[in-house]
Simulated assay, not measured.
Amino acid sequence: MKPLIMLTLILLLAGCSSLGVKPWERDLLAQTDMQLVSDPIEASLDDHVYFSKEGSSGGRGFGGGGCGCN
């Protein structure tokens, strides 16, 4: 029974060993196409729309609507 538990534990730990970004993959992730927000002007316009709809709620963190006439 103990060898089975040890084997299971080793397999679980070995499955987590490949998490993370390798050093040779970082150049691909640094490209503008790979960014979450690739266009800062579009992101600022989206933020303005969210702020206008939320009113004084505090931006993206709260649900609800609004007229958006800001």
Results as ranks from 00 to 15, higher is better:
54 E>A: 12
3 P>F: 02
18 S>D: 12
22 K>G: 06
25 E>T: 03
27 D>H: 05
42 E>Y: 07
69 C>F: 01
13 L>G: 14
59 G>T: 01
65 G>V: 02
49 V>C: 14
50 Y>K: 10
39 D>Y: 03
52 S>N: 07
1 M>K: 10
47 D>L: 05
47 D>Y: 10
22 K>S: 11
10 I>A: 15
22 K>D: 14
37 V>N: 05
17 S>N: 08
16 C>Q: 12
15 G>H: 11
19 L>S: 10
34 M>N: 14
67 C>E: 09
52 S>E: 14
49 V>R: 15
1 M>P: 05
54 E>S: 14
58 G>F: 07
6 M>V: 04
36 L>A: 12
35 Q>D: 12
23 P>Y: 07
29 L>V: 06
23 P>D: 10
67 C>W: 04
27 D>M: 03
49 V>D: 15
30 A>E: 14
69 C>P: 00
24 W>I: 05
8 T>N: 09
22 K>H: 04
34 M>L: 04
11 L>T: 14
16 C>H: 08
27 D>E: 13
7 L>P: 00
47 D>K: 12
53 K>Y: 03
47 D>I: 05
8 T>E: 11
46 D>M: 09
56 S>K: 09
19 L>V: 08
28 L>V: 06
38 S>H: 10
57 S>V: 10
43 A>M: 02
30 A>K: 07
22 K>N: 11
7 L>R: 06
35 Q>Y: 07
50 Y>F: 06
20 G>V: 00
7 L>A: 13
54 E>C: 06
3 P>H: 04
26 R>L: 12
21 V>S: 15
27 D>A: 11
16 C>T: 08
34 M>P: 01
54 E>W: 07
9 L>D: 13
22 K>I: 06
69 C>Y: 05
63 G>E: 08
29 L>C: 04
22 K>T: 12
51 F>E: 15
30 A>M: 07
31 Q>F: 00
15 G>I: 09
41 I>A: 14
56 S>R: 09
10 I>H: 08
9 L>S: 15
61 G>D: 09
67 C>Y: 06
5 I>E: 15
1 M>V: 04
43 A>L: 02
28 L>P: 00
36 L>H: 11
39 D>H: 03
66 G>M: 01
61 G>K: 05
38 S>T: 13
6 M>P: 00
66 G>N: 02
47 D>F: 07
17 S>R: 06
44 S>E: 14
33 D>H: 12
5 I>P: 08
63 G>F: 03
21 V>E: 09
23 P>K: 11
30 A>N: 14
63 G>W: 04
41 I>M: 07
29 L>W: 01
64 G>W: 02
34 M>R: 09
36 L>N: 12
59 G>M: 01
52 S>D: 14
45 L>A: 13
1 M>N: 10
1 M>E: 12
24 W>K: 09
6 M>Y: 05
63 G>S: 08
7 L>Q: 09
41 I>N: 11
1 M>Y: 08
38 S>L: 01
2 K>C: 09
66 G>Y: 01
56 S>Q: 14
